[in-house]
């Protein structure tokens, strides 16, 4: 009897989990499916017929390519800026005990606990007050601001098991602080930094709310989609959405595979890093 109940519960949980996963993936399937749709009018809501022409000419819609290009430029700058600033904070928070560390930890958490709309509105208040024209650079500033906390969280998670003795060993072997950082510290934290770069790039390219407040006349990809949603979204938007999706999944898989390998080779790798 209990065996039957246990069997049922075991599979009930699995069925529930698979349903939840299906729910998470359903809209993604719809996005990809409708990138092959051949709509009759302006609205890409109902299935009309299969076509490859949207994929053949993804940027055939005026304004789509410049918007995506702007988004990519912003995301690249933001990923570099936020990762640099956030990694330094994470290093300080994990590796040093210092006065004010608790306060710094809470402070880092605050931007993540602020609704995007409040952050967007407050930044716009600042730019309006000092008469700073909103546009490309204000978007970059806004994105770096909300990305920093995510970078700190990501890098910190990887830093927790960090062995400080490796750095001390390098210093004992007459490496100066700069060499120690480049040859020992950075290689050790590289996977975390890479994840942070990917995450901040993804968050930047996806952001709508804060961008909407601080964009001026600049149009990013999400802003383009927002504008298009009022008059009918062309299927090319689904094509670009699908490309972004597959590119991101591909990069994540690559990162997972990369991290699985060093786990096995961790011991010799750290040994080499310390010796060389």
């Amino acid at each position: 009897m209990t065996a039957v109940v246990r069997f049922a519960r075991h599979h009930l949980l699995t069925a529930y989990a698979l349903l939840a996963l299906a729910y998470l993936l359903l809209p993604i399937a719809v996005v990809v499916l409708f990138s092959f749709n051949n709509p009759n009018g302006r609205f890409n809501y109902t299935w009309q017929g299969f076509t490859l022409k949207n994929w053949g000419d993804p940027f055939g819609v005026p304004g789509l390519w410049p918007a995506l290009q702007t988004s990519l430029e912003i995301a690249a700058l933001v990923a570099l800026g936020a990762t640099a600033l956030g990694t330094l904070i994470a290093l300080a928070l994990v590796r040093y005990g210092f006065r004010g560390r608790g306060a710094a930890n809470i402070f880092i958490f605050l931007p993540m606990a602020t609704p995007e709309i409040v952050m967007g509105a407050s930044l716009l208040s600042l730019f309006l007050a000092i008469n700073f024209q909103t546009g490309f650079w204000t978007i970059v500033i806004a994105h770096i601001t909300f990305d920093i906390s995510y970078v700190v969280t990501t890098v910190r998670a990887r830093l927790v098991g960090f062995d400080r003795h490796l750095e001390e060993a390098a210093m004992d072997l007459y490496a100066n602080s700069w060499t120690t950082f480049w040859r020992v510290t950075l290689p050790l934290i590289a996977p975390g930094v890479l994840s942070a770069l990917l995450l901040s790039f993804a968050l930047s390219i996806d952001d709508f709310v804060i961008t909407n407040f601080n964009s001026g006349t600049e149009v990013t990809f999400p802003l383009f989609v927002w504008g298009a949603a009022r008059v009918g979204v062309p299927p090319q938007v689904n094509v670009v959405g699908s490309i972004i999706f597959f590119a991101a999944i591909g990069l994540m898989l690559l990162n997972v595979v990369r991290q699985r390998r060093p786990q096995r080779a961790a011991a010799p790798a750290t040994a080499t890093a310390t010796v060389s």
């Binding site: 996806d206 999400p222 989609v225 959405g241 999706f245």
Partner: peptide, 15 residues
């Protein structure tokens, strides 16, 4: 689980 985050927020809402 995090796959939805790789589809632009607005696009997945439109889906």
């Amino acid at each position: 689980v995090i796959a939805p985050f790789f589809v632009t927020y607005l696009i997945r809402t439109l889906a």
